[in-house]
């Protein structure tokens, strides 16, 4: 009976709600009763965990606001675990008798709250990720539809907007590579080369640049491609460069540029 009584007082003791006499009695008991001391430690942990979430929560306000807060939390975080209505302590006597059940509820609530919050954060970050992905794909779709525009200005605008994306997936690289290879406007090809040259380490980009060098007739675009290929291994680029060098239609200054980049070429 004595032990029951002490356990009943532990929550209030922890919150400093006992008068001096009761407090002294509880402390006296705790110093002698290992079971109650252990109980206190457990309760402390739960209370502290809960206080971290709701710093101003006291047992009184906890009792009064338990469901209200729970509802609020449920509204805020849809996935918090639901605690059934029959666990609601209706009277103080019931509260006293069921202190461990309440403590268990707190554990459940804290656990649920933490899990819920974790899930929520996770869901939110997933949602953000999905949203970012959607925004990106909308951007990409816009860019791709723009790049099919009959207006060269709009196609350049599309290439510029792709240029602002931080990362380019293979589809976008391919789209730009197609612009380098097949767009009938010199300025679109030129802008696409300049955007793609940042990704020159990418195999697809290298391949399309080397292909473009074999088909490109405009000297300005040729020079842009030659300069973009300049940092690659000589053995990868020497063959298309030599082909261009030996082409009688190639402009003198383009040939000069090739010799500058691959000095040993013949």
């Amino acid at each position: 009976m004595e032990k029951e009584h002490i356990k009943d007082l532990l929550v209030e003791y922890l919150d400093g709600l006992l008068d001096t006499l009761q407090k002294d009695q509880v402390e006296q008991h705790l110093s002698e009763c290992a079971i109650c001391a252990k109980e206190l430690e457990g309760l402390k942990e739960v209370m502290n965990a809960f206080k971290e979430q709701s710093p101003e929560m006291s047992p009184e306000s906890l009792r009064e606001n338990f469901h209200k807060r729970l509802d609020e939390e449920l509204q805020k975080y849809h996935k918090v675990v639901y605690i059934s209505e029959d666990k609601k302590p209706k009277k103080r006597t019931v509260w006293k008798q069921n202190i461990m059940r309440i403590a268990a509820s707190i554990v459940l609530l804290v656990g649920g709250f933490v899990i819920g919050k974790y899930q929520q954060t996770d869901t939110t970050s997933n949602e953000i990720a999905v949203l970012t992905k959607e925004t990106k794909s909308v951007k990409q779709k816009m860019a791709i539809s723009l790049i099919e525009s009959t207006s060269a200005g709009k196609r350049i605008q599309a290439v510029n907007s792709i240029n602002q994306l931080e990362e380019l997936d293979p589809d976008m690289l391919q789209t730009l590579a197609n612009s380098v290879l097949y767009d009938n406007n010199v300025n679109v090809r030129l802008t696409a080369v300049e955007t793609l040259q940042k990704f020159i380490k990418n195999q697809l980009v290298q391949k399309s640049f080397i292909n473009a060098l074999q088909t490109e007739k405009n000297a300005g675009v040729q020079i842009a491609i030659i300069q973009a290929l300049a940092n690659l291994n000589e053995e990868d680029i020497i063959s298309p460069m030599r082909q261009l060098l030996n082409d009688s239609e190639t402009e003198g200054f383009v040939k000069d540029q090739i010799k500058k980049i691959v000095p040993n070429i013949t």
């Binding site: 200005g153 350049i156 030129l190 405009n218």
Partner: peptide
């Protein structure tokens, strides 16, 4: 201000 202006010559 919407669409870029681009001029290139050889």
């Amino acid at each position: 201000q919407k669409i870029p202006t681009t001029i290139s010559t050889t």
